[in-house]
Structures are given as structure tokens and as C-alpha cells.
């Protein structure tokens, strides 16, 4: 048999060493909810699995510089059970909690969702909207980059050989900020997003949007950060005209495909519909803190 080597390093350095030194296909085993499915379908045939869950800090959520650092192996369920994190970044938490079933939530992680590099990954548009950073360890040391720089095409990341994501950092936010994420699926649960939209925004005292980040998933080979769309609502109070402009900008930015999950036409339309709805939820949340 072609044996798959399985390792459980207890330090980041040991994991990097294993990944960097591997002959053949080395894969990080984290929540495993994507990897095991791919292995079963022979989409991925690894020769080495590096299970990172025994490394200290991988399972930890901690406060850092007013924001939150979430270890790579923290599951969606664990994020949802963290009241302070859920209060500061409800959109990111709700997006992560949309991945799969309750059962999948017991294992699936945000870092894994990001590195699986599926265009439909739920947590990714929410993280992008939040301005999240991914901490990466590798043979050349540690670095931290915006999450949107990790996926480069479906199933492919910008990570170099030997590198892996050790944590996600969600920054501190000003007062009167809120974020939200919605996805469209044909059922109520258990589907991959046909379109996903994450928006994070900050209001001033007059309830005018003074900062915004808008991201879309499942409408292009990777999740999109839409600066033009954000500009349509900055300086507005999300009046109908501003929301129309936001919807139009989001629809215009889509470069989707027709597939079993939805048509191009449908995705383009839904991107705008969701953006309007998400912006209003984010605004309502911002007004409350």
C-alpha cells in the first residue's frame, strides 16, 4: 500500500520542518472537513499529513491589541460559544457558523475554510470585509498578510512550500461599527453558497457611513474585495439610492460561472440583492454599539 505518513508535531517549528522537508504531497490536517472528503474522492492523494491540532495556541482565542487572535484549529462551534468575539465580529462568527452542519461545526475552522480556497467559502468574504489578517509560519519565519491574499484560484493558495496559517487576526474596531454576512442557498442549510456577501462598516454620530469594506464570495474564482462598492455607501446614510448603487456595483463586479449550483445571471442578480440586505444588518448592528 501507499502509506500516508501521519505526524502530530507539538510546535510550529516542527510542523514547518515536516511540511518543508516533505517529499511528495504534504497536507495540513486541521478540521479535516474538506481534506477527508477530497482524499476519499482521490482529488488529493497526500503522502504526508501534518495534524497541527496538538500545537499549543492552535485551539486558543485570545485578545490582542483590542482585537482577537483566533488559533488556526479553533472550530466554528468554539467561535460561536465565545460571547466577546461574537459581540465584536458577529458577521465573521455567523459566516463561520454557516459552514456545514452542527457536526461539521465541531471540527471545521476558519483557517481551513480560507486555505481550502473554495470560491464559495462562507467565512472568507466575512473575514475580508473585517480586514482580517492571516498569520503564516514557514521556513523563512513568520509573516502576516490580509486574508484576501491567500486564495489565488479555486483550490490554490499563495502559501509557499512549508508554510501554513497559524492564526487569523480580527482587528480592533471603532465604536459604531458592525459587520454581517449573508449567503444565498436554495435550501435553508447544508449547501455551498451560490453567492455570499460580507460587509463591515463604521458610522459617525450622524449615522453616516464613514468606513466600509464589501466582499463577495462565489461570484469569481476567488472571493472579491470590492473597493468601488464600498465607495458607493461611504458618506451615505444607506438611503435607497445608496443601496441601489451598492447593489449595482456588486452585480457589476461579478465574474461568475454557470454550474450545478447556480447560473451566471442568477448570481449577478443575487449579489446585489444580498449586498443591500447585508449592509442594512451591518448598519443596525453598528447602531447598537
Amino acid at each position: 500500500m501507499d502509506d500516508i505518513r501521519y505526524e502530530t508535531p507539538t510546535s510550529v517549528n516542527a510542523a514547518v520542518k515536516l511540511l518543508a522537508g516533505a517529499q511528495g504531497v504534504a497536507k495540513v490536517l486541521n478540521g479535516g472537513t474538506d481534506l477527508l472528503v477530497q482524499m476519499r474522492a482521490d482529488v488529493v492523494t497526500p503522502t504526508l499529513l501534518v495534524d497541527i491540532k496538538k500545537i499549543a495556541d492552535m485551539k486558543v482565542i485570545k485578545k490582542e491589541k483590542g482585537g482577537w487572535r483566533i488559533g488556526a484549529s479553533v472550530s466554528g462551534a468554539e467561535m460561536g460559544e465565545h460571547p466577546e468575539l461574537s459581540k465584536m465580529w458577529p458577521g465573521v462568527v455567523e459566516a463561520t457558523e454557516l459552514i456545514g452542519s452542527t457536526q461539521v461545526q465541531g471540527r471545521a475552522t476558519m483557517a481551513g475554510n480560507l486555505c481550502n480556497a473554495s470560491p464559495g467559502a462562507d467565512s472568507v468574504p466575512a473575514m475580508i470585509a473585517a480586514g482580517a489578517l492571516a498569520a503564516i509560519a514557514g521556513p523563512n519565519g513568520k509573516r502576516e498578510i490580509p486574508v484576501e491574499q491567500i486564495p489565488v484560484s479555486p483550490g490554490k493558495t499563495s502559501l509557499a512550500k512549508g508554510e501554513f496559517v497559524t492564526s487569523i487576526y480580527l482587528p480592533k474596531r471603532p465604536k459604531k461599527s458592525g459587520d454581517a454576512y449573508l449567503r444565498f442557498i436554495p435550501r435553508t442549510e447544508m449547501d455551498i453558497a451560490v453567492v455570499g456577501c460580507g460587509i463591515s462598516l463604521t458610522l459617525d454620530k450622524s449615522k453616516t457611513v464613514i468606513a466600509a469594506r464589501v466582499a463577495l464570495g462565489a461570484v469569481a474564482p476567488t472571493a472579491l474585495l470590492l473597493e468601488d462598492a464600498a465607495q458607493t455607501i461611504i458618506g451615505t446614510k444607506l438611503e435607497d439610492a445608496a443601496l441601489d448603487a451598492l447593489a449595482a456595483a456588486c452585480s457589476a463586479a461579478c465574474r461568475p460561472i454557470d454550474d450545478k449550483r447556480g447560473t451566471k445571471e442568477f448570481r449577478i442578480k443575487i449579489a446585489g440583492v444580498l449586498a443591500r440586505r447585508v449592509a442594512l444588518i451591518a448598519r443596525d448592528r453598528a447602531l447598537k454599539n
Partner: peptide, 23 residues
């Protein structure tokens, strides 16, 4: 759902989409 080659595209519960409890 078939592709142009006549291959089934949604041969799994994920994309075949039977009703779940919340539906």
C-alpha cells in the same frame, strides 16, 4: 444535473439537495 459529456454533476447529498429538517 448532467454536463455536456453526459456525466452526472451532483452525485452527492451536498448538491442533490434533499429537504433537511430546517426546510
Amino acid at each position: 444535473v448532467y454536463n455536456a459529456k453526459g456525466q452526472l454533476q451532483n452525485a452527492g447529498f451536498l448538491d442533490y439537495r434533499m429537504p433537511v429538517a430546517s426546510d
